[in-house]
Design a binder for these strands. Sequence first.
RNA 1: GGCGGCAUAGCCAAGUGGUAAGGCAGGGGUCUGCAAAACCCUCAUCCCCAGUUCGAAUCUGGGUGCCGCCUCCA
Length: 487
Amino acid sequence: MTLTIYNTLTRDKKPFEPIAAGTVRMYCCGVTVYDYCHLGHARSYIVWDTVRRYLQWRGYQVQYVQNFTDIDDKIIRRSQEEGLPWQEITRKYIDAYQEDMGRLNILPADAYPKATDVMPQIIELIKTLIDQGYAYPVDGDVYYAVERFPAYGKLSGRKLEQMEAGASERLETEAVAKKRHPLDFALWKAAKPGEPEWDSPWGKGRPGWHIECSAMVREWLGDRIDIHSGGEDLVFPHHENEIAQSEAALSQPLANVWMHNGFVKIRGDKMSKSLKNFTTIRSLLETTDPMVVRLFVLQAHYRSPIDFTEDAIAAAENGWNTLKEALKYRVNFEQLPGWPEIDTLEQASVDRFNAAMDDDFNTPIAMAVLFELAKDLRRAGNVLVHTGQSDLSVEQLQQKWQTLLRLSQVLGLEISSLSEPELTDASTNGNIMAGLSDAEIEALIQQRQEARKAKNFAEGDRIRNELQAQGITLIDQPGGETRWHRH
RNA sequence: GGCGGCAUAGCCAAGUGGUAAGGCAGGGGUCUGCAAAACCCUCAUCCCCAGUUCGAAUCUGGGUGCCGCCUCCA
């Protein structure tokens, strides 16, 4: 089986071949840190985290770098509004980012470079572009000359003339006057009074948005990388401009594969900062299990748009419960005599999972494999709880469970405290009511049986409710026997 | 105006020529004093029209509708 990936640049799926066998160098465009992250960010980084996890699962060593844009107009504005130094703004939102992503079980990147960390490299790159005739300084600004780069537009599939015609009414006349071509973009912006500034050969100022990524990719991963990823909205102009900068300066492709994730929509519209219709990750996580968010995201293909609705989240919630139950049923299985400590997986499921993921990371199909395993396990687990025996062999159960656990991890779907004591023994969970011993429970059940025998169902139900409140579920079985289990 | 994407059951979502995965919700049933849990069964011909083909959700042409990008944005 070969992993195939859709490449925005070529607009088709092709077998993936890393530049260096066995290693994948991947750069993901991060956030501008001036506000809390919203669900759109959550989707994007869940997707790239899953891509990264799958590449690792397939045996690649992945170098994953993601930047923070920590200097730009919005940060400056925010800093002025709040009367705080820009460094405090960015630190606050970088911390918030890390916290949010951690809760979503997104693995930390190998490096999180910041734009302000690579100022010398940025200046060096701009110099190179000027020397080679791709850029020109004007009044302390430096612009990239798009007409000098014939391939400009190749990523987003447009031609300069089309864009110029379409955008002409929107371009700021002030900036246009300085530019040789209306679509030339800033590599360096002269600082206005009071703004953060860095020294440069063109005067004090700060980098434009796109140049930082060109500099950071090169600094951390090299002149040419395997995968460059980001949201669909970065295709133009951000990634187009990165290509123009890096490829003009270094005379080779910046990235072999360009990947872009689809948007999160809310009530049919794109969720975005500018539309102010976003739900922040942290507010969503107040009421929603992070794994539910993850499942919601992965139930759609990463390139399709997804619509965020109450119903969709509720459905994902129920779906996660199904998986969670199955993952937790180990607790029951482990009571089986001969629960083997084996580490083999159910190959048929693994094969189907891999085939799905190899096809441009088709997580909806991969999820279907998980659900089928989970339903098998849940059924077997419940039969076990209810009857004391299983219709599957212990080895089969173990293998299915192991497979589900392992494949779920590849998608980042995990019960964080799976190995914690609370799951292996609810009675030690510090719950006062859980202090009931098995014998006490048995005694109460006995009392209930007496009551039921005497048709005193009110009393019987009272005992059952009382036990239920303490986390103990009773199952009346045909034949009169009552089984129970903690949960 | 230019470029691009999408349209599959109540909802979400796979499927790109061989007779519709999976999830959620729903209906019916088994079990029960009633429950709970579980189990079993059940629930679509794929936006419309016209073609190509032995055969199309899948290809072609034409419609209709929705969305995105072209401006900061994951």
